[in-house]
Structures are given as structure tokens and as C-alpha cells.
Amino acid sequence: MSDTRSNGAVATTAHQDLHSEQGALRGEHPGRSRNPVVKVADLAWLEFEKPDLDRAEVFARDFGFQIAARTENELWLRGTFAGSPCTVIRRGRTSRFIGPAFRAAERADLDRLARATGTEVRDAGVPGGGSAIGLLDPSGLPVRVVHCAEQLPELPGQQPLLLNSGTEQRRTGAAQRPPREPSRIQRLGHVVLETRVFAQALDWYLDTLGMIVSDFLFLDGQRERGPSMAFLRCDQGALAVDHHTLAMHLGPGNGYVHSAYQVTDLDAIAAGGEYLNERGYKRSWGIGRHIQGSQLFDYWRDPDRLMLEHFADGDLFSCDLEPGWAPMSTSGLAQWGPPATRDFVGANPSPQRIRDVIGALRGDNEMDPARLLALLRAANS
């Protein structure tokens, strides 16, 4: 990507100051493409494989999903909002993430992508019908762009609790008793990926799918080497959208880190967390409030140790927000809440993690000993 900033040593605007203390320095990555192939509208769903669909369905219901469709070999999960399903889980030999599917703004965008990438428009294989393009990002991750023929109807949702705040007394003569039940998922919010080829992958999502960066993080003492993490949102012009739909960070592995699903409010997060805890599921980190994106969060592991997040009250920005820049550190992940756990930041050693590190240092990618040491310092900061 050749576009760079040249208007002053530090780019700052009143709009940018709303979410970040620092802007880009002269010549740093602009966080968007001059002429993307298309501009995707949102995530459509995420695709997984698991060997036991019955166990996957039990956790899905406990976590707060509704069942959109179920066959012998596929489980489609949804939230209460109208739209596409959140997740499809297909029967497979191991538990693994396959890839994300992004929603095309228009059916014609699929034809434009097909011409630009030398691919074909195929059947999406989604309940209700639709079309899809299959791509590979620079990390080798399958990425689909889809246009659905039908949208799922809205379902009854969890109502936010009526709160008394200071002199604003909206609830009188009634007690507050949030039910101990699953947090009712409203929609898919975002997915976080790790990649050894961060710069290539970042530019691919900007150039091919038209995403734009809300925030960059950089490693301590290595800002001149460029960002090591980016929070990307969809570009829907003046329409304010989620601070990030996709987040990516440099690391020794390639693939899934976690996915996030919106619920009603803090009480839904907390009561739903108690429900999960009572059923023996393991919290990875939470409850707290993030800095980049401002979401209230709570992270959990499913029975196969894949990480999922409940979130509420995230930032919404339109296309005119410039990227913020901040140092990458564990302590910089939250405004308040318990310290980030070793499980959440991936600092617990495992045979697979050791293999990832060895493979990354031996391979042709952006990982080198200096980057690895800086990532370790960030994880322990």
C-alpha cells in the first residue's frame, strides 16, 4: 500500500481525540486503501468444525445462541437480531476454525470480486439460499464474501434492566432481580486473528474488502517498524458502525484467537457469566471494559478451548475517524477489570505454541527474534 500521510508531523483532529491520544506520524500507514475492490458491509458468520455437534449445541445454548438450523452434519447458530446466522459448525475430525464470511453490500460486489481475483461465484450453502466468493488471505486463511437471499426474522430479546442513576430515578416501587439464565446473544460482533504476515494481511483486507483501521498498536521501541496490531471496521460512509469487525495482530501462529457476540448490557454479561460458571465452563478473562472499542467484556472457553466473548456497549464510528496509535501492552487492554490472564494473552506454554514459534522463526514471514522478544514483553507488561 503506497498511500502515506504527509500533512504535518502528527495527524490530530478533534474527531480523532475522541478515541485516541495519539495519531499517525508523518509517513505512517494511513489505515485505508485508496481504491478497494469492494467494501464489505459486515461480518456475516464464522465457520468452524467440531467432531461432536451435540456437545457443541449444549455449549451454544448455554452461551446464549439460538439454533437457526440443525442437520446431521451442520449446526447453524444465530442471535436474536434479524439478519444472517452468527456461526456454522460442521462435523469434522478435530475442533478448529475454518474462516470468516463477510457480508457483501450488494450482489454485484461478488461479480466485481470474482473478476478481480479470478474466482467464481458459487452457492453459499446457507439456510435460505445465497451466493458466495471463496478467497484466501495472505495467511492462508479461507475467507468468504457472501450475499444472502433471505434474512432470518427477529426473535424475542433480553430487555435491558431499568436503572436508577443519580437523580434520574426511573425505577420506583420495584426490586432489581436479573434472571440467572444464558446471556441472550443479539449478533456476531467481531473476530480476532493472529498472523505471521501482519503487514501483508492488513493491506489485503483494506485493498480487497475495503475495511478501514480504527486503531493501530505498535511494539515498544519498534514503532518505526510499523504496527503490530490493527482494529478494522467496515466502511459504510456516514453510517456509524462497530469500532472493529476484524482485529489482527502479529504473532507466531496463523488463525483464530477469539470471536465476540453482543448481548444487552452489563447485567446480561454478569448473570450469563454466573450461569456459565455454574455449569463448569472456564472464564478466560473478565469482567472489564476495553480501551480500544470501549466494550464491556467477558471471555470464556468452550469445551474444546476455543475462546468466545460476550460484549456490550461498544464504540460506533463513521468513515471519517482517523486511526489512533498506541503502544501494545497487556495493561493497555482494559480501562478497568481484573488483570489480563496468561490464558487470555496466550502466555501459557504448550507444545503447539512452541511449534508455532519455531516455525515462525524459521519461515519467510515478519517474525524475527526482535519481534518475538517485544511480543513477549508486551504480553507481560
Rank of each mutant, 00 (worst) to 15 (best):
S2I: 05
D3L: 15
D3W: 11
G8T: 04
Q22I: 05
Q22A: 13
N35Y: 04
K39E: 06
K39Y: 00
V40P: 00
V40G: 02
L53V: 12
D54R: 15
R55S: 09
A56N: 04
V58D: 06
L75I: 02
L75A: 02
L77F: 01
R78K: 13
G83H: 08
V88Y: 01
G99N: 08
A101F: 12
A108K: 15
A108N: 12
D109Y: 02
T117R: 14
T119G: 06
V121K: 10
R122N: 13
A124I: 08
G125F: 08
I133L: 11
G134H: 14
L135G: 03
P138D: 13
G140W: 12
V143E: 10
V146W: 12
E150K: 15
L152I: 03
P156H: 03
P160I: 00
L162N: 01
L162F: 00
N164K: 03
R170V: 08
Q176P: 00
P178I: 04
P182I: 12
R184Y: 14
R187V: 13
L188W: 12
G189D: 14
H190P: 07
Q200W: 01
A201R: 10
S214F: 05
G226Q: 09
P227H: 07
M229N: 07
V241G: 05
V241S: 05
D242M: 07
A247C: 02
Y261L: 04
D265F: 04
A268I: 02
G272N: 03
G272E: 06
E274W: 05
N277R: 14
K282W: 06
I291N: 09
S294C: 14
W300D: 06
W300T: 02
P303S: 09
S318V: 03
A326L: 13
M328R: 15
P338A: 05
P338N: 08
R342F: 13
V345I: 15
P351L: 14
G363V: 09
D364Q: 11
E366K: 12
E366R: 07
A379N: 11
